[in-house]
Design a protein around this nucleic acid. Structure first.
Lengths: 184, 184
DNA sequence: TGCTTTTATGTATTTATTTACATATTTCAA
DNA sequence: TTGAAATATGTAAATAAATACATAAAAGCA
């Protein structure tokens, strides 16, 4: 069973989800296309880690909603006792940054401004969802959901995403401050 | 030509490097095994983006040292004008964090303490290398290498790595502060 | 009515990446 | 002196991931 399979199990452990919903929801943590997800769900079902229910929808196409089994929960508990492998980050901008001195300041600025936009767009979504969890859990300023609450995981992940985005924005702005302004 | 090929070109554009050196050097930006790198270098050479020189060593095995050609530089300049694709981050700890409420605080702590160690180990190496560049370029406190200097790229990348590591450490410590202490 | 988008699920093919297999030299430690 | 580790280069096989192919229902628009 590969990491993505455990990731799907992890999401399903919170609440039943369709393959399509899983595909959308797992993107921030472990990007994957639906073509990778559907076959893994079929395998998880074959191994009795999950079950699914066909749900007819009148407004949208029908779907399969997957739920975790007790065997699936057991798999997750076991997986959690093993150390997490190192994170893998692949960012084309890093490779471009290394040889950025080959091009003019205008070309350079474009790259970092685009990335700045990328992170700014993400940040507002994270802030909204943190507020939602705070409200739903009745938390004050610096409060956490309890460690044994399912909200704990989502809460700390949103904070990580928010902190990382803010740091990346700071970095982009710092880099842009060192690129000479375009002359007119 | 894929992203890794451009990454190799980008590193070679600073100074000639062997396949083995490239493999070691590219890890922080675009992890890759030597088995992926050697065939790409052969293709780059076939397309006249790089040339290599056989270098005999008395203390170590002989090696092929690759240098960039003017055609290679042209490829890089062209590539730099295209927008950088979105960064891809895959972190098993994020998937584990999402269902962390399934396990006891002790198991939970182990995961985050291990990750804390991971980032602390990285941070000291980055600080050392930033000092090296500062000294070599004769820079003061808040100074940058000039935008058209090859050092500019390495300098901003090291700062990004340092800033990200610090943020990740803060996040791990913040999470650990919310996990109940182990009872004895 | 025909066109696009979103939701929904799947398979086939190609590309990217990892792991394993293979070889060779030097240094260092048990 | 045998074995491990680092340096060095390569290929083969397996797995992971992306792209493309395929179908379909509903909604909204022109």
């Amino acid at each position: 069973m590969n990491t993505l399979s455990f990731g799907l199990l992890s999401l399903i452990s919170h609440s039943p989800l369709s393959g399509y919903d899983l595909m959308l929801k797992i993107q921030p943590f472990w990007p994957a296309k639906h073509s990778q997800i559907y076959p893994l769900l079929a395998t998880l079902e074959k191994n009795h880690q999950v079950t699914y229910e066909l749900v007819s929808q009148s407004d949208k196409p029908d779907k399969k909603v997957y739920s975790i089994t007790s065997k699936g929960i057991e798999s997750l508990r076991n997986w959690l006792t093993e150390p997490a492998s190192d994170p893998v980050m692949r960012d084309e901008l890093m490779l471009k940054a290394y040889c950025i001195s080959l091009v003019d300041p205008a070309t350079s600025r474009k790259l970092f401004n685009a990335r700045l936009e990328h992170y700014r767009n993400k940040i507002s979504r994270f802030e909204d969802r943190i507020s939602q969890i705070r409200a739903a859990s009745g938390l004050q300023e610096n409060g956490f959901p309890p460690h044994n609450s399912p909200n704990f995981g989502a809460f700390i992940l949103l904070h990580k995403a928010l902190m990382s985005s803010r740091t990346n924005i700071q970095w982009c702005e710092w880099v842009l401050s060192a690129i000479p302004p375009e002359e007119i």
